[in-house]
Design a protein around this nucleic acid. Structure first.
Length: 206
DNA sequence: TTTACGATCTAT
DNA sequence: TAGATCGTAAAT
């Protein structure tokens, strides 16, 4: 483990619309029984404060979304659809409720551990969705509020690749069909393809 | 206390 | 395309 590679608070203490695309190509890391599970972050979404009517902070601070109002660089983990956990990275200054939803990663380390956590699921479907990702990384309510900027909470994000804006795909956020315009269609989802990632890794092996 | 719904996933 | 499944927050 290389603690110096962990993204610092300053990375997260910026507008969420900068942090969300910058997280593409960074490495999500989880420590389970002293074993590393990791993956390249390849899809994110930005949720930006109480004026964003798709953001959980739209109706103010509640017990559920309180972590989003706290300091940047923390994990906001919420429960949804009666059975799923989703993982976010809190951004911006304390008191401003914004976060990046981590929607998908490409697995790197700990694949045998993921295989146990995702028994019966094809490898290509392990981490290609926000709730699939949390299952594969053993993330649930216990990680809500975890500090992503050090290794002591066994969940963090390490520096990795940086993709220029003209390589990053954008589109509307997923699963917010009842959200009013313009928030329903504003292109605040960001992703890179597996081909783009492997091409970059040929020059900079990970 | 009751109700309606969800930043989803899976099988059909 | 619909069913699973239950915490959350707003409505009653």
């Amino acid at each position: 483990m290389e603690p110096n590679h962990i993204l610092p608070v300053s990375f997260y203490n910026r507008p969420v619309l900068e942090v969300a695309p910058d997280l593409l190509g960074k490495k999500l890391v989880r420590l389970v029984n002293k074993k590393r599970i990791s993956g390249w972050i390849c899809e994110t979404e930005a949720y930006d404060g109480d004026q964003d009517l798709a953001c959980h902070a739209r109706s103010g601070k509640t017990q559920r979304n309180a972590v989003m109002f706290g300091p940047p660089g923390r994990a906001y983990v919420y429960f949804t659809y009666g059975m799923h956990w989703c993982l976010n990275a809190v951004t911006g200054p304390e008191g401003y409720a914004a976060a990046v939803l981590l929607r998908a990663v490409f697995p790197i380390e700990g694949k045998s551990l993921i295989a146990e956590l995702r028994e019966g699921i094809a490898e290509k479907n392990w981490t290609n969705g926000p709730a699939k990702l949390t299952r594969s990384f053993a993330v649930n309510k216990d990680q809500n509020g975890a500090n992503l900027t050090h290794s002591e909470d066994f969940l963090w994000i390490e520096n990795g690749l940086r993709f220029p804006n003209n390589m990053i795909h954008t589109g509307p956020r997923i699963g917010i069909q009842n959200t009013p315009l313009p928030w329903r269609t504003i292109p605040w989802r960001f992703w890179i393809t597996e081909d783009q990632l492997t091409e970059r890794l040929q020059y900079k092996p990970g």
